[in-house]
């Protein structure tokens, strides 16, 4: 564990809490892509199957359980409890466009051809692109609530901080996993346009509105 890993994990946790609180406090999930949330739930479930097979640390187990449970809770709030507020007309990105290529790529490029390893690799690839339905929804409506912007910023920072963690681990632990690194890089790049708008607009007290 290094400082980048820890802050990355905390950014991830913060993002999840921001989203749940936003939905709960406003009793609304408008502006939130239910599809991205379903994809994240699939990511956590397929990645954290190792909860049943190996124990790493109390921290590791606790965080994995929090991610799985909170993502399930988010999906429940969007599709059941506050479903009347869900922007289904704008949330039109096709999930299979992300899921199917991720499955194919995981079957082709992975460390070992075992069920657990392919599912883990699939989760890494799917996570890299799982935010696309959310970014698509924001681009369709042309704006995002400030709280949604904070959520996206925290969620985007997390994999960026992991990139620094991987550089650290390469130098100090001689650890290198190209699958995580390349996917994490792609994931972070997808947020760049949003990061720019966040810094130039939201941090200056304005709402996130896309340029026409």
């Amino acid at each position: 564990m290094n400082i980048f890993r820890l802050t990355g994990d905390l950014a991830h946790l913060t993002a999840i809490i921001i989203l749940l609180l936003k939905i709960w406090k406003t009793r609304s999930c408008s502006g939130i892509s239910g599809k991205s949330q379903i994809l994240f739930t699939v990511v956590y479930i397929t990645r954290y199957l190792d909860l049943f097979t190996n124990y790493i640390s109390a921290y590791n187990t606790l965080m994995k359980i929090i991610f799985v449970v909170s993502s399930l809770a988010t999906v429940f709030l969007i599709y059941f409890k506050f479903k009347a507020t869900y922007d289904r007309n704008h949330d039109t990105f096709r999930m299979e466009f992300l899921i199917i290529p991720s499955i194919i790529l995981a079957l082709l490029i992975r460390h070992e051809f075992t069920v657990m390893e392919v599912l883990w690799t699939f989760s890494i690839y799917l996570e890299a692109v799982a935010i696309l339905p959310q970014l698509f929804l924001v681009s369709k409506t042309g704006e995002a609530e400030t709280i949604t912007s904070h959520y996206l910023f925290a969620l985007g920072s997390y994999r960026g901080l992991y990139l620094l963690n991987w550089i650290w681990r390469y130098y100090f632990e001689n650890f290198l996993d190209w699958i995580s690194i390349v996917a994490g890089f792609v994931q972070t790049v997808l947020y760049c346009d949003f990061f720019y708008l966040y810094v130039t607009r939201v941090l200056h007290g304005r709402k996130l509105r896309l340029p026409a």
């Binding site: 790493i56 991610f67 070992e112 883990w120 001689n174």
Partner: peptide, 10 residues
Amino acid sequence: QHATTGKDEL
């Protein structure tokens, strides 16, 4: 590096 090494990450 081996396949199982990255699994301590989240």
